[in-house]
Simulated scan of single mutants.
Amino acid sequence: MTGEAMRVLVVGEAASWLSGLQVALQIDANATPSVLRHVDDVTAQDWLWLRELPSRRALVLAESIARTPAIDGLCAVAAECAPPVPVVVIGDAGFPDEMIRWLQAGAAACLPWPSSVARTRAAFDLAFAGGRFVPEEALSALLVLWRQEALGEALPLSRLPVFPLGGDKATQLAESALLGISARQYEILALLSRGLSIKTICQQLEISEGTAKTHVSALYRRLGARNRGEAIYIAAQRGARHLFET
């Protein structure tokens, strides 16, 4: 980042990361500090404040705002500014299907928090340069979902599996999306592939036998399988390689 001043309008619940963002955007002790303005709802005065100076400017949305239809209007107004104001979504992480939605709405960056100073600055620098930033731990899942969309095979958002990203979880998300099954069904399929009984699976996942059988029946329907062997074979044929290592 350069030493020029920066104005950042933060919208939504940001108590857990606002001070950290202020520190991360500070270049050094002698640099002009970034000015953050935190609001719950954006008014005309807030937009005027953001546009006032020819400095670097950014609109930061808390995840609670990004998950509402308000993101579309906020991104549209930010894009109409001269020069356009990049929109950055900050929160716990967000799930790949949500990130795709935010990027499609016009967000320039999806930044998990906490993030290192270097990562935060890189995200803002890329946004100011007109690029897009997504966390590296989400890339594998994003690529699968984008590929499905490009091939006209995108799953409805209600059917996309939802669980935190990071490490193996991102790969599991990619494979469960590839198979069109839920996160819990993916876990059960992984255990079935090891030859475990329903009783043992119940103990592993701490669920009742009735619940486990309901998940198994739903899993078979989703995959078009009649039994355990067919479910495992279909998953393997569809490319779920990590499933058997989980």
Score class of each variant (00 low, 15 high):
K169F: 13
K169T: 11
K169D: 14
A170W: 07
A170S: 15
A170K: 03
A170C: 15
T171Y: 13
T171H: 12
T171F: 13
Q172H: 11
Q172F: 07
L173V: 09
L173Y: 14
L173W: 13
E175M: 02
E175C: 00
E175T: 11
E175K: 01
E175N: 09
S176D: 03
A177S: 15
A177M: 05
A177L: 07
A177F: 08
L178W: 08
L178N: 14
L178P: 02
L178S: 11
L179Q: 04
G180A: 08
G180I: 09
G180F: 12
I181Q: 09
I181T: 09
S182C: 05
S182M: 01
S182Y: 08
S182A: 09
S182K: 03
A183Q: 02
A183P: 00
A183D: 10
A183T: 01
R184W: 09
Q185L: 03
Y186A: 11
Y186T: 10
E187H: 08
E187N: 10
E187T: 04
I188L: 13
I188R: 03
L189R: 04
L189F: 00
A190R: 04
A190V: 08
A190W: 01
A190P: 05
L191K: 05
L191Y: 03
L191S: 03
L191D: 04
L192N: 07
L192V: 12
S193W: 02
S193D: 12
S193H: 09
R194K: 14
R194W: 11
R194L: 15
R194C: 13
R194Y: 11
G195Q: 02
G195T: 06
L196G: 05
L196E: 13
S197T: 15
S197G: 13
I198D: 12
I198C: 10
K199A: 14
K199G: 04
